[in-house]
Design a protein around this nucleic acid. Structure first.
Lengths: 342, 342
DNA sequence: GTGAAAGCGCTAACAG
DNA sequence: CTGTTAGCGCTTTCAC
């Protein structure tokens, strides 16, 4: 059980050839006679040779590794996105280096810088919060980078991107509630200044305006003390009462976790969903099917989001021209929304 | 935006020193006068130098990377474990390379072999299914490896490990049901031959035996057609009816997802939980708090499982002596279990 | 077909 | 204190 692994030189010595011949043989270079090629491969096997990918990377200037930054792995949404990324990466022979940002730009930048030092072939970042100026802080001549659901306005100008259409999602949600006869419709958002939150709110406002429904400030609740984002379930739970007090009969929630929190609050307050109140979530995480009643939601193709981003990255690595993608969410009707109860 | 990144040689040329001086300066080697050290660092900054970790790794024989294999990232249990791993790894300056095995030994071995080629400093594998013989297939002189919740009997002999005490968990669950007055207690398991499933079943049997409760074969349901493991929620949903038919008043479920499936089936069949039937899960995933009624469960310290494993790996890397760990689960009483209804 | 030699970018032993 | 010289393990011209 010696410490140092064996190298092609060790094999070369044993086979009585030069190390370059071994290198060629192992990589099926046609210049080598099949005779010696097989012989060398056999010896390599006997010696339990394990090629050193680090040395290969240094020489080839490719690591066959991509870096992925997400806010948290434990978040079911990102877990699903990463699953999609990994599927495509694996089938392309690429490995995934994973980092978390916890919604903090500094940590996000640190992760990316680290990936640069490690010479990853490409980078994927979800929920990126890097602004134009910060873009320069980040090492120039960056490797191909694709952002997923960018959280900064002008980011598509500086990075390739794939994103969900938040306004469309909001529109589907609110129109669904309107179709059910609701007119007192609230928005239950989160406390950070993320783009998703803003755009879902805008979508909500736009639909109400178009439908000629009056907008009441109290119908929008956003736990924005400290401008920091707490646990989403807790947010939903805490903010629900004020919306109920304000008299809404339907609520569009920022995401499924917030909706679940709202649902829990309803259970505690004895509010029946959907009889007394209709709830619509966003994301389409599995969890939504398991609560009572199951959650009507705007479903994002999470796996597809990861897959698409990874595919764009692959195209970029193959030097193809690529286009940013905007994926459409869709309404999934379940038990938490129903016609208004007159 | 040239292609090749700048190296210490470029800096050396510009600073009029040798590349080794640059190397030393950048790494705060005390031999270098603080005068030139600052000067070199300044130049490096101006030139946007990004050290090449690949070259460093080749030289240092350390990659500062660990490989992690899980069955699936989208599984909330492993997502949490990986979160724990990443926390400790990050604070120790290590990066995480992530792979999935999908509960398949071949894929697990492939992932580990790949990690060996990439010369990771250590490996963590969750739910490992590698047997003693296969251990030899895997490249010898392996890097330090720690398994989390091993799924093969004699694995602790070949790998370091941290695991949950499945028998104890089962014991807590079944004793809880007995304390509530239940005597017709079922076990709802999964269809693969994993150790966890077997040990939870054994724990269940042991407690019943000790309590002098008669054991009815029909009280144990395990979706083992094809010996393959389907979606856990579906398993719970499908298998519940037979246990109910068999007359149980309490069920210990393999894990929370199975329990959630059982709960959904109860909703459909009009069985009230916990009035008609008590349900106990296993794992303690967040989801358990959100269903109606919230799930009584045997909670595993998932984050801690990841953290511990990573800590053991760090100790191994520091050449300390380490000991395998067995963590204890604990009972979390919630709404899905109640005294038997006479 | 195969070998010799250079070099990927860095660290470290050895001289001065 | 700093420069010279070897490698780390591999791929890849360029000769033969």
């Amino acid at each position: 059980m010696g410490k140092r692994k064996i190298s092609i030189e060790d094999i070369a010595r044993r086979a009585g050839v030069s190390h370059s011949t071994v290198s060629r043989a192992l990589r099926d270079n046609p210049l080598i006679s099949s005779q010696v090629r097989e012989e060398i491969k056999q010896i390599a096997r006997e010696m339990n040779y394990v090629p050193n990918a680090i040395a290969q990377s240094l020489q080839n200037q490719r690591t066959s590794t991509i870096g992925v930054v997400v806010t948290s792995i434990a978040d079911p949404f990102f877990a699903e996105v990463v699953e999609g990324i990994e599927q495509i990466a694996k089938s392309a022979g690429l490995n995934v280096l994973l980092s978390t940002s916890h919604r903090d730009v500094e940590q996000e930048i640190a992760a990316i810088d680290n990936f640069h030092r490690r010479r990853v072939d490409g980078i994927l970042v979800a929920d990126s919060r890097i602004s134009k100026q910060q873009r320069e802080q980040v090492a120039q001549i960056a490797v191909p980078t694709v952002v997923i659901n960018s959280q900064i306005e002008d980011q598509p100008e500086i990075f390739y991107s794939v994103a969900i259409d938040d306004r469309l999602g909001a529109q589907l949600a609110v129109e669904h509630l309107i179709n059910l006869g609701h007119t007192a419709i609230g928005y239950l958002g989160v406390g950070d200044r993320s783009l998703s939150n803003q755009q879902r709110l805008e979508g909500y406002r736009m639909v109400l305006r178009k439908a000629g429904i009056q907008q009441i400030p109290n119908w929008v609740a956003m736990n924005d003390q400290d401008n920091v984002r707490a646990n989403d379930v807790t947010t939903g739970q805490k903010m629900l009462p004020q919306l109920v007090t304000a008299g809404v009969t339907g609520i569009f929630c920022y995401n499924d976790m917030v909706a679940v929190g709202a649902l829990l609050a309803c259970h505690e307050l004895g509010i029946s969903v959907p009889q007394d109140l209709s709830l619509v979530g966003f994301d389409g995480i599995a969890l939504g099917c398991y609560v009572t009643p199951p959650l009507t939601t705007i479903s994002q193709p999470m796996l597809e989001l990861g897959r698409s981003a990874m595919q764009i990255l692959l195209d970029l690595l193959a030097e193809k021209t690529v286009e940013n993608r905007v994926l459409s969410p869709c309404l999934v009707k379940r038990g938490s929304s129903a016609p208004i109860n007159n």
